[in-house]
Design a protein around this nucleic acid. Structure first.
Length: 673
RNA sequence: GCCAACGUAGCAUAGCUGGUAGUGCUUCGGAUUUGUAAUCCGACGGUCGAGGGUUCGAGUCCCUCCGUUGGCUCCA
């Protein structure tokens, strides 16, 4: 007999050799919703045989661990279905991910979305057959034999397994896969699966290797949960900033202007202006000096900074000086030669600036600096241009021209910690003001194995420590991530997810010992000696484009009153109130409120319907009653109403709401019913 | 950049196996003057992303390019 500790703390005796699954059934009953077991705190199959004392509990298909196991098992099911239908396809890897699972296949070319249906049907068929999933221990030799026809699996076996060590496979019917598990015990647990998309991926994430076909899917424990998950995905798509940006007329991208180049239309520009004003207030408060610099700079500047050689592939090609072009043309230079000269940097010219720092550095060095000048904080809404890969460009979140709410702080070594702290506090203030609480903080550190970084070890150590210290003082969870540093220094990033689960870096604070050295920056210390300042790069929004894109999704287009492109839409009931409507609109306008008037001859129902799509904070409905009382009826976005409010009272409340940057419009109290 | 899918008026969409484009909303004109998610009638608006090809004939088939979407890779 063995003693098994159960979830409630009690201890039961079972005969040795019992399986984890049998115990789960014993404690949870036959109708349990568990799909695997936790044995001594580690995830295990139901089939795990227990020979000694331990603790056992079930893992529900609804728990985080449970859904992860189901996803992983569903990936196996997918691979089984694909290899059944496409015998030449070679399964490679197929993990569970945040929102579901995928499996990558080689030899599955020309597979498209339209093929998903058939595969999904086959998956359901296999699931219905209730095939048991077995774990089998295998020696290295056995594995070699079983996977001999699959070079990808063999590569994993050869790379990941210690010499001589075996591993496990999971078998379901004829099909089996190399895997550590655990898995659900039967394919029948995977009935509620849906394939969502097909795309491609490189084998082992390496661009130089084979391109594989990747199939994505989601799986849920029940029919209902699958349905609600699918509904949630659909719902999220409605918040996509690309869709809302069009519906609310916030921005436009025109292919004749260029991919990834955002045209801010009036309504979107209003939001941006409000945000920039908001930041500017904080800049003044925090002792920043605002500067302006041009959009281009000489190539040599970026040779000195290192950006030109380092990021050459992701920059717009240089603008070559006219005289140089003429000279080269007279010398018979071919286009090919010109391209070579450009990429080698053996040519003079200008570049669209990919970064603001070199310009700001030149402002620093335009004067002799003393320790009394530091910290010197130079801020600019600086527009930069980067040649992002065409396949990467997306809406406002990944673009080729964008404006950073940038600043560079020139500080002494002693000031680093305090200034980094000030920077991340600013980021926090902004996130808080906008109600963006769903972000993660990432401290990007060097990848010790990579040679791409510049600067000495000691300086990196110091900078990394400053970042860690600042992050831990934040009072929120943060993680260290190797290899996420910039080439010149470590950084603290604020990362948020968009509606379809993609992560975007917004605010960032970076410590940089490198550029001051490259540019030979100096200041005279109190000791009379010359010292080198340290730079801090920081952008609380990151870029205005990306931030606004994320913000559109965050608010689902329903911006708080202070940010709403149009705050009030005034709608008249009939032509009898046209004069009153114009009067109210004019008064609001002169009070600084962004207002739109509709005194046309549509019915009020039609007007509301038409104006709703622009999501003003409030609509004012003006009929005879209001005109007679010098009042307004306020209609909130959700349709709630507050009738017959004296205009002056409304205006005072509205202005208060705007000035306080209230997170949500609240002039109409929520109505019960 | 790579793989796949897609690209019809401002927006949303119909158009089967090829025979010279329909609809709704918007807009404009007219009628109506209407209390909180679409009043009625009429008109304008597309040559079907661009270019080339096959065909008697292409939105519909083929090729190239541009763009969009989903991923991969990249991201100062």
């Amino acid at each position: 007999m063995i003693s098994v500790t159960l979830p409630d703390g009690s201890v039961n005796e079972y005969s040795a050799g019992i399986t984890a699954g049998e115990i789960v059934i014993d404690i949870e009953g036959r109708k349990h919703e568990c799909i695997a077991a936790m044995v001594d705190g580690s995830q295990s199959d139901f089939s795990t045989v227990l020979e000694s004392d331990c603790s056992v509990e079930g893992i529900s298909g609804f728990s985080d661990e449970g859904i992860h196991i189901m996803r992983h098992s569903a990936a196996h099911l997918l691979a089984q279905a694909v290899t059944t239908l496409y015998p030449d396809a070679k399964p490679t890897i197929g993990p569970a991910i945040d929102r579901g699972f995928y499996y990558d296949f080689a030899n599955l070319e020309d597979f498209g979305e339209s093929d998903l249906k058939g595969v999904q049907k086959k998956m359901h068929e296999i699931a219905r057959r209730n095939i048991s999933v077995e774990r089998v221990e295998c020696s290295e030799a056995e594995l070699g034999e079983m996977f001999s026809s699959n070079p990808y699996k063999m590569e994993i076996i050869n790379d990941k397994l210690e010499d001589g060590a075996g591993s496990t496979i999971y078998r379901q019917g004829e099909w089996y896969d190399l895997c550590l598990g655990p898995h659900v015990h039967s394919t029948s647990k995977l009935m509620h699966v849906r394939l969502t998309s097909v795309s491609s991926a490189f084998w082992r994430g390496d661009q130089s290797r084979e391109q594989l076909t990747r199939i994505y899917g989601i799986v849920e424990p029940t029919k209902e949960s699958l349905k609600s998950t699918m509904a949630a995905i659909e719902e999220a798509k409605k918040r996509d900033h690309r869709k809302l940006g069009k519906d609310l007329q916030l921005f436009h991208v025109d292919e004749e202007v260029g991919q990834g180049l955002i045209l801010w239309t009036p309504r979107g520009a209003t939001i941006r202006t409000c945000l920039q004003n908001f930041i500017s207030e904080h800049l003044t408060r925090q002792g920043y000096s605002q500067v302006y610099t041009p959009h281009i700079g000489k190539l040599d500047l970026y040779r000195t900074s290192g950006h030109f050689p380092y990021y050459q592939d992701s920059q717009y090609p240089p603008l070559v000086e006219k005289d140089m072009m003429i000279k080269l043309a007279n010398e018979g230079c071919t286009c090919g030669e010109l391209a070579n000269l450009m990429s080698a940097g053996d040519i003079e010219g200008y570049m669209l600036k990919p970064m603001n720092c070199p310009h700001h550095i030149k402002i620093y060095s335009s004067q002799a600096r003393s320790y009394r000048d530091l910290p010197l904080r130079l801020a600019e809404f600086g527009t930069v241009y980067r040649w992002e890969q065409s396949g990467e460009i997306s809406g406002m979140t990944r673009v080729r021209g964008f404006t950073q709410d940038d600043a560079h702080l020139f500080v002494t070594e002693d000031q680093i910690a305090g200034e980094v702290l000030g920077c991340i506090e600013l980021v926090q203030v902004i996130f808080e003001a906008l109600g963006m609480s769903d972000y993660r903080v990432r401290v990007g550190l060097r990848d010790m194995d990579s040679g791409k970084y510049v600067g000495s070890n000691e300086k990196w150590e110091l900078a990394e420590k400053a970042c860690r210290d600042a992050a831990s003082s934040l009072g929120v969870n943060w993680s260290e991530e190797e290899g996420e540093a910039a080439f010149y220094g470590p950084k603290i990033d604020f990362v948020v997810k968009d509606v379809i689960g993609r992560e975007w870096q917004l605010g960032t604070v970076q410590v940089d010992y490198n550029l001051p050295e490259r540019f030979g920056l100096q200041y005279k210390g109190s000791d009379g000696e010359m010292h080198r300042p340290v730079m801090i790069h920081r952008a609380p929004f990151g870029s205005m484009e990306r931030f606004c894109g994320v913000l559109i999704e965050h608010f689902a287009g329903k911006f708080p009153t202070w940010l709403a492109p149009t705050q009030i839409h005034v709608l008249t009931i009939s032509e009898k109130q046209v004069a009153y409507g114009q009067d109210i609109a004019a008064k609001l306008k002169s009070a600084g409120v962004r207002v739109e008037l509709d005194d046309g001859d549509d019915t009020i129902g039609k007007k509301i319907r038409m104006h709703r799509k622009f999501q003003p904070a409030y609509m004012l409905i003006l009929g005879d009653d209001e005109a007679n009382n010098n009042s307004v009826s306020i209609r909130a976005r959700n349709g709630d109403q507050r009738a017959d409010v004296a205009f002056e009272e409304f205006l005072a409340e509205l202005q208060n709401e705007i000035h306080s940057k209230a997170a949500t419009p609240a002039l109409v109290p929520p109505q019960s019913n």
